[in-house]
Structures are given as C-alpha cells and as structure tokens.
Design a protein around this nucleic acid. Structure first.
Ligand code: NAD
Ligand code: NAD
Lengths: 214, 214
DNA sequence: TAAAAATTGTAAAAAAGGTAACAAAAAAAG
DNA sequence: CTTTTTTTGTTACCTTTTTTACAATTTTTA
C-alpha cells in the first residue's frame, strides 16, 4: 500500500465534521449529504468527500452518509474512541477554569493530575485530582497514566514544564503560553493562542477601516 | 496599483514575528537577519522575506532588519499601534480568567465591559469594569467604544450573543465556544478552540502509536 | 419497469502557497 | 581600492491544496 501523507488541515476539518455530526445526531437526523454537511461546517462538499477519501469510503451513492456511522468512523480515525488522560501544569486563573470545565469529561478527555509551583496555596480537589508540586510530575505522570500535558503557566516557565513532561514520557502537549516550545520531534505540540487571534482580528478590522476610507 | 490578496496565514506569521522580535528587543538585540529570525520562529528565511514583501521593504541588504524598526512596522501593519477595546460576554470560569489576565493590557488590549446573564451573582470590579446584564450590550458597546467582542458562554447561547454584539456595532469577535458562528460578511470571527487542538493531538498520538506497532 | 434525480468517489484541472535561486546592495576583509 | 562575504528583495519553479467535472450507483418518480 502506498503511503499518503495526510495534511494537518484535513485532521482539523475532520474534528469539525465530528462536532457538527454530533449536533445532527442529537437532533435525530439519520442521514446527511456532503452538500448539507458542508453547508453546516462552512466548507465545500467536494472537500468533505476528498477529506474522507483519505481514510476510506463511508457514504452511499445516491443517499449520503449515515450520521451515526460517519461519526463513529471519524471518531475511530481521530482516536476519540478511548478516554484520554490529561495532566495540567499551572493551576492559576486559566488552569482553574480548565479543571472546572466539565465539558471535556463528556467528550473523552479527563484531567487526572495537576501541578503547580505552590501547591499548598491551592486548595482544590476535583474528583481524584489534588494539586501536586512540579517535582512530582515524573512520578504522577506514570502513576496516573498522563498521555497529554496541558501547559497553563507564564511563558518564561513553559519550556521547562514542557521538558519535564517530555522527560516523564508525555508525547502530546497543548500549550496556552504565548511562546514557541522546542521539543524532540516525537513530541506533538498544539498551541492555543488567544493573543494571536486578537492580532488577526486587529489586522482585519484595521484593513477593513482603511478600505472604507478610500 | 494592483490589488494583491494577502493570505490569512501571512497575518498569523506576522504576529509570530512580532512576538519574537519583542523578545529580541528585550534582550537588547539591534539587528536580526531573516535566517536568524526564521530559526527562532520555526520557519524558513525566504518565507519571512516574502511575507514582508507583501507590505514593503523593511530590511537593508547585506545587513538584515533593525529589530525596533521592523517591530514598529509590523505593529503598524497589524494595527497594533493603538489601544483596542474588548467587551466580554460570559463571566464564568473562562471569562473570569480572561478578565483577570493582565498580560493583554500590556499589549494594547483592554477589557472595557463585561456582560453576564446573572450579573448580580458576580461581584467583580476590575478597574472600570462592572459586570452588566446582557440587555445593556447595545448601550455599553457604544458608551465604552467596544471594538472586539469576546464570547465565553455555553455554545447554545453563543450565536445569540454574537448577534447582539453585531447589532450593537461590533465587527470583530473572538469566540471560545465550540460552535460555528454565523454572522454577516462584514463581521470577522476568530475561534479559540481547545477541544479542536486536543482532537488533533489525539490523532497524532494515535497514528504514531499504530505506526510503532507496525 | 424505465427514466429521472440524487449523491458519492475520484481523476484532472486550477489555484494557492512555499522553496530555491540569484541579482543587487551593503559591509567586511585583504 | 578591490575582492569577498553577507544578506535582502524578487522571480521562477515546485509542491500542496482546492475546486471542478463526471462516471458509477442508488433512490425516487412516472
Ligand atoms: N488567563 C487567561 O485568560 C489566559 C488567556 C490566554 C493565555 N493565557 C496564558 O496562560 C498562562 C497562564 O495564565 P494565567 O492567567 O492562568 O496565569 P496565573 O499567573 O494566574 O497562573 C499561573 C500559575 O502557574 C503557577 N506557576 C508559576 N510558575 C510555575 C512553574 N514553574 N511550574 C508550575 N506552576 C507554576 C503559579 O503558581 C500560578 O498558579 C500564561 O502563559 C498566559 O499567557 C492565559
Ligand atoms: N472553562 C474553560 O476552561 C474553557 C475552555 C475552552 C472553552 N471553553 C468554552 O468557553 C465557554 C464558557 O465556558 P465556562 O467554563 O466559562 O462556562 P461557565 O458556565 O463557567 O460560564 C458561563 C457564564 O456565562 C453566563 N451566561 C450563560 N448564558 C448567558 C447568556 N445568554 N448571556 C450572557 N451570559 C450568559 C453564565 O451565567 C456564566 O457566568 C463555553 O462555551 C466553553 O465550552 C471553556
């Protein structure tokens, strides 16, 4: 079999498809065409069909896609058919919000550990989680089976936290700090970047305004 | 002059360049070459030069780019040479974290208003901000000059909040709710999407594991 | 049962985006 | 002062991604 590299953007879209299929499922919709789904997702039908074609054939000609079935298949592709265990580094403003956010738990993601510089200051217990000191990362990542690290500390400390997570065996990191993390190539990093999005908006608003003036 | 459409991704990279130039400036670096900057930003030098070429000539042949000057110019391009006023909808877990986050204020972004369904429940005052009921959006957006709306409420309510913001005259929205907002074409929307990033990581980890097994 | 309509999967074409290469200019070395 | 080195700005080329087009298949209509 020929190896085909799957573009990152395809994965992003698959996640969007899954999200909207879930909504359709809740609404009791059984079958959806690529045209309808594209409309909902804000993309084009051929794109959906081509994205899916990377992984196989999931539709029925003349009919469309069975919502439940496609959702299941995309879940399998993305690896959402299992529980993923998250470990949080930095239980500050943002970190607390993330821990308290129950939405993830309903979607296959569970925080199983949390770390902070000054754990004694933070008296939070959510289910099994107790905030531990940074030094405990190595032990707890293994004990609790942390697979994905979530970094929510100040940019200056973020790299060190990433290094410790990787040393402990974590291969996936979601980084909220506005800084470019440098990790070994076997480690996958995704950034969630609010300021970046603000900057993009500023540019759009600014250039829209200057276009109006002309 | 020929109109050249500037790809979205170029703007994203400009923001990254600006962020790293700021760090270089703080370190006291005066001049940087596209090779060095590319190395720091994790891209390629030709890309940086081409990105900048969309907007003009900012370097000196044989020398490189003057850090302060390039930073200033990129700031001007992105529209960061002014204060931007933000209005928050949803002062819950995430919303509070955003309000309390002072980083933005140091970078040209200021929250000037905050709205919640049950404002009486939330006793927070940060500077001039007092949490107001949703009905006050129209009045306060105008009074406080809100230019960018930040949505941090449950997905089901997000569209309504967006509509109200747009009605009040807001043309830029950063949306934290995991839902596709539908707005008029003159409104710019940027999504900050944690679950999406988690899904991408899951896919990468899953496919890396299945590759190992082979 | 036959014709028309709907819709997928995929090949081919078109568009967009990224990379390499190099002339031009400045600085450094000889 | 001349040659070599450094480095930008830009063109041409290459790669990736998106869109179009259509045969193949199923369902619906007549
Ligand atoms: N708060 C937000 O709304 C927001 C939004 C976008 C991005 N961010 C980013 O998220 C990160 C965290 O923001 P925040 O507002 O929660 O900050 P914060 O200061 O409220 O929290 C940081 C927490 O990390 C802990 N900490 C500090 N150094 C540490 C270390 N070396 N190891 C472990 N823990 C350590 C602190 O004790 C604190 O509890 C920052 O990088 C920020 O830029 C925050
Ligand atoms: N908490 C997180 O870490 C996190 C992370 C990623 C995304 N999100 C998303 O951000 C959004 C908010 O999350 P949260 O954890 O802060 O939720 P939350 O329930 O803590 O807060 C929601 C707030 O919005 C208010 N509200 C409800 N309906 C409203 C309405 N119609 N108008 C105005 N205010 C209204 C509520 O009173 C509450 O204060 C959600 O869409 C969530 O999916 C949250």
């Amino acid at each position: 079999m020929k190896f085909v590299k799957i573009p990152s953007i395809v994965i992003t879209r698959l996640s969007t498809y899954a999200r909207n299929l879930k909504i359709l499922e809740q609404k009791g919709v059984d079958v959806v065409s690529s045209v309808r789904l594209a409309d909902i997702c804000g993309t084009n039908p051929a794109q959906i069909r081509k994205d899916l074609a990377y992984f196989g054939q999931f539709g029925v000609k003349g009919v469309g896609y069975y919502v439940k079935e496609l959702l299941f298949e995309i879940g399998k592709i993305l690896g959402l058919d299992k529980e993923w265990r998250l470990g949080l580094v930095g239980v500050g403003n943002l970190g607390l919000a993330l821990l308290r956010h129950t939405h993830f738990m309903n979607h296959g993601y569970t925080f199983v550990a949390a770390f902070d510089e000054k754990p004694e200051r933070i008296d939070i217990r959510i289910g099994d989680i107790e905030v531990a000191p940074l030094e405990a990362i190595n032990r707890l990542v293994k004990e609790k089976g942390v697979e994905i690290g979530v970094i929510a500390i100040k940019p200056v400390w973020a790299q060190k936290a990433a290094d410790m997570l990787v040393m402990a065996g974590v291969c996936g990191i979601v980084n909220f700090a506005p800084i470019q993390l440098q990790c070994a190539t076997h480690v996958f990093i995704e950034n969630v970047d609010f300021s970046l999005k603000l900057d993009i908006l500023c540019y759009r608003l600014t250039s829209a305004r200057s276009r109006q003036r002309r």
